[in-house]
Nucleic acid binder design. Structure first.
Lengths: 342, 342
DNA sequence: ACGATTCAAGTGATCGTTCACATTATGGGT
DNA sequence: ACCCATAATGTGAACGATCACTTGAATCGT
């Protein structure tokens, strides 16, 4: 009807049009207190007429609550951890919060600075970091600080978020492969500023040593398929490596393809095992052995922890993250040694 | 030193401590106007002492600018389109905006409603939707509305964002396969509320008809590997389909594996082609033929369009999205007919 | 018919910042 | 010593909502 107003309608304008006070409209929007039917009608009409929408910024300014939590992730991640994020978002939603995702680029140092800016902005009630932030640790919300929870499988000091399930699975993997006759291993690691990557690497080295097996070393260094491909295609022909443990499925897929390209059959000549159980892992050829991490429950309990920190409630019982070894076609018995030793 | 203050320091507190007016501190924070060296020193000291951080909410309330754009995506997407998002975020960053990602769950109807809420919240200066929003279309920013750009390969009315590169590639695919002797095709489609999925399906049907080839129909319906697997494993043994065109790489990977499981060699018995050129597509076995969509430039120009809408500038020249057919190991000549016809 | 009680709605301050404007130093020329 | 331009800083009102109170209208028992 009327020409476009110069700006969005405010509470006061609605109130004026409805012939009531601004406070009445505010109460109406929050379903507080009883109203006379006539009032309801007039206010509703005015809201509709002006196409009124509450200004969240003004509201947040007064209440100091935004209802928004952010999940932040480092950018150079091959694929965003969708199931983790989805589970976290679902928990947030059910608790009345909205979760947004902020991708923070750059080296670890920069990331911590940008994360601090987010924490200080006052725009967020809590921040869930996927991946470690150098020099920062979990903190509850106070009038001066925004709550921060860190999901990095383990926090920086390896104080367990749940038991060290991570490590135990790696040992199980190596034991299983050893039982199949494998003696010489290779680890393709992830970026070492991820504590989950560090934990896998460390447990790999420890298990190899404790079980009296041989390691041909550690390669890789980021989370990409290319890196996995390079790790295997760069291997000497006589390396005698028969089993490869990759820090994630992308690395493992690259490794499988590299083996294929140099005519090393997987698993007859080389066994490969990944980590994460990507949605496609059971459909690849050969189907990829991997570690299924319960990413849903991981995301869920991290978000529950964050919300407890936001509300200054005691931390909820953390769900035990269950990491489960899944053997598929990419692993098998070690090949018979090319030239028998005795 | 001092005990934790009841709440974060404000401009006024800094000003009081430094012995200047709040406005001087504000100016200082924005590098406006010259200052006496002594003033600079005192203000800097006060900011440090109180660990002052400007409250972005209060600032936004006054300036009506938040510097924040959001990319929204529907949730049931197998993997977030990382390259697109990264490119978009980079453009935003360079233009002085911060891009956050909001995942909106639920059916198309709900999504549109939630998107509208985001648009109305006042928290965002612009919204970039990946995927169509029923009943909503691109709009510039006005005092009462938030800018909205939609990236769905093509917008709802198929008014080309750039030329219909999409379609032309599909025709090229079919022509190429026909040249290799293929006569009977199958399309595995994506969800039809995505206009890109619709465009692929429509062009598939049109090309088949115009080139005088046969279609065994259309299967699929979402973007998942499972769906692709089911499409092929459900195929009759005597379907005579020799070429499968999937609407994305996940569907294609499922199709390849299903073929493998029923002992249909890819590509000797069945050629499969995907869409998107996933990072892993060139490493799968067999390496997947696919369509490389320039997702970076797609994300980039969508974000440039959004920023122009936010600033009420004329729309920038859209970069021509170049879709390029990449033939790898999963496609090959059609098999000789099992029983020669003449 | 009147005071007490509950119902319904109104008033003005406030959150922390920026805007528009007013005011007070400072220094140089005559 | 005075004026004036410019440098440097100060003042108070917005922004649009909510909070903490206060006030006026209806209801009811006696």
């Amino acid at each position: 009807m009327a020409s476009t107003p110069p700006r969005a309608a405010t509470l006061h304008e609605v109130a004026a049009l409805a012939g009531v006070s601004h406070q009445t409209v505010s109460r109406f929007l929050h379903n507080r207190g009883p109203f006379k039917p006539a009032t309801i009608e007039r206010v509703e009409a005015a809201i509709k007429e002006l196409n009124y929408r509450p200004n969240m910024i003004a509201r947040s300014m007064r209440t100091r609550e935004t209802g928004i939590l952010a999940a932040i992730l480092p950018s150079p991640v091959t694929a965003l951890p969708t199931p983790t994020l989805a589970a976290a978002a679902e928990v947030a939603r059910r608790s009345g919060y909205f979760m947004e995702i902020s991708v923070i680029e750059g080296p670890a140092q920069d990331r911590a600075r940008r994360a601090q800016e987010l924490l200080d902005s006052g725009r967020l009630e809590g921040v869930l970091s996927l991946g470690a932030l150098p020099g920062m640790s979990e903190q509850p919300r106070t009038p001066t600080t925004t709550a921060l929870a860190i999901l990095d499988q383990y926090d920086d000091k390896l104080r367990g978020i749940g038991p060290l399930a991570d490590a135990s699975v790696l040992r199980e993997i190596i034991q299983t492969l050893a039982d199949m006759g494998h003696r010489r291993f290779l680890h393709i690691e992830g970026p070492q500023d991820w504590s989950s990557a560090r934990a896998r690497r460390d447990e790999y080295l420890r298990s190899i040593a404790e079980l009296g097996l041989e390691s041909h070393g550690v390669r890789g260094g980021d989370w990409t398929t290319e890196s996995g491909y390079a790790a295997i295609s760069g291997l000497e022909e006589d390396s005698c490596v028969t089993a490869v443990i990759a820090a994630n499925d992308y690395l493992a897929l690259g490794a499988v393809r590299a083996a294929h390209d140099r005519c090393w059959h997987v698993p007859k000549r080389l066994s490969v095992i990944g980590w994460d159980d990507l949605a496609t892992a059971r459909y690849t050829i050969p189907a990829l052995s991997t570690v299924a991490v319960d990413r849903e429950s991981q995301g869920r309990s991290a978000m529950e922890r964050l919300i407890a920190l936001v509300r200054n409630e005691p931390a909820p019982e953390p769900a035990n993250p269950v990491s489960r070894l899944i053997l598929r076609e990419s692993t098998g018995p070690a090949p018979a040694p090319p030239n028998p030793q005795r």
